[in-house]
């Protein structure tokens, strides 16, 4: 039975290898993908248009802002769906849960280390978020690092300890606020006379040039993305580790 699956696998592989033969040379700067006017435009004009040194951040949040916005919405919807699937479905916390509480005294070394490390992680998350314009980083990475710090708290103590700091309703509100920030910046630029997510029109609100308006709007958008991603990552962990009961956890 199992060997039947090898037929489609190897036929797909043969087709892909047949196509790989026709790919451009490895690292060829004149390959079609690298020669395309779109990416050349991004490389040449990002500095002029937005004054953001990191092209990836600029393309992510500005040129392809619409795409990124709905990617963020997808993450948000995934978080809500996990909540909806697991909410109230967990087994009743019977004897297992109680004995777990007696057994699992948080380890002293682990909690002390986490206590020392978590502020550093959160500071680093803010750094990654804010410094994404000039170095690798941005809203997605900073948000994930931020969510990981809360996951670390939940791992070192237990889930309740982390949920005191970041309860699930608060998580969801923060996630929604992130999307509202993103869409709000888009609508704000629309009301200023541009198109949706046309940040250059924000120059009338900010005392800066058009390019710097885009620069700061990218920062705002990244903050929105970071909010959503951070809270959804923690909500995913909290729900999955406790089967939706939000108690005890691992």
């Amino acid at each position: 039975m199992k060997w039947i699956s090898l037929i489609p696998v190897f036929s797909v592989g043969a087709l892909l290898l047949f196509a790989a033969k026709d790919f451009p040379e490895w690292g060829d700067p004149h390959s079609p993908a690298s020669q395309s006017p779109v990416s050349s435009h991004f490389i040449n004009n990002t500095g002029v248009d937005t004054e953001v040194p990191n092209m990836v951040t600029a393309v992510l949040a500005d040129y392809r802002g619409f795409d990124t916005m709905f990617e963020t919405v997808v993450v948000f919807i995934a978080g809500i769906a996990v909540l909806a699937i697991l909410k109230g479905s967990g087994r009743r916390p019977r004897g297992r849960h109680r004995s777990y509480k007696l057994e699992a005294e948080p380890d002293l070394i682990v909690t002390y280390t986490v206590r020392l490390v978590v502020p550093v992680i959160q500071l680093f998350a803010f750094y990654v978020l804010a410094h994404g314009h000039v170095s690798p980083g941005g809203g997605f990475q900073g948000g994930v690092v931020m969510g990981a710090s809360f996951i670390l708290i939940a791992l070192a103590w237990d889930l309740d300890h982390a949920l005191v700091r970041m309860s699930l309703p608060r998580c969801m509100v923060i996630a929604a606020v992130g999307i509202i920030i993103y869409a709000g910046i888009g609508f704000l630029s629309m009301f200023m006379g541009g198109e949706f997510l046309d940040y250059a029109e924000l120059e009338r609100l900010l005392p800066v040039s058009r390019e710097m308006a885009r620069y700061y709007a990218i920062l705002g958008v990244e903050i929105g993305v970071g909010f959503t991603v951070a809270s959804i990552m923690f909500a995913l962990y909290a729900n999955l580790s406790s089967e939706g009961r939000l108690k005890g956890g691992l």
Partner: peptide, 17 residues
């Protein structure tokens, strides 16, 4: 950027989840 995202997301959060 992709490497950074993969380091945080793929090696970090998705393994934990």
């Amino acid at each position: 950027d992709v490497a950074f995202t993969e380091a945080t997301v793929g090696a970090g959060v998705s393994t934990v989840v």
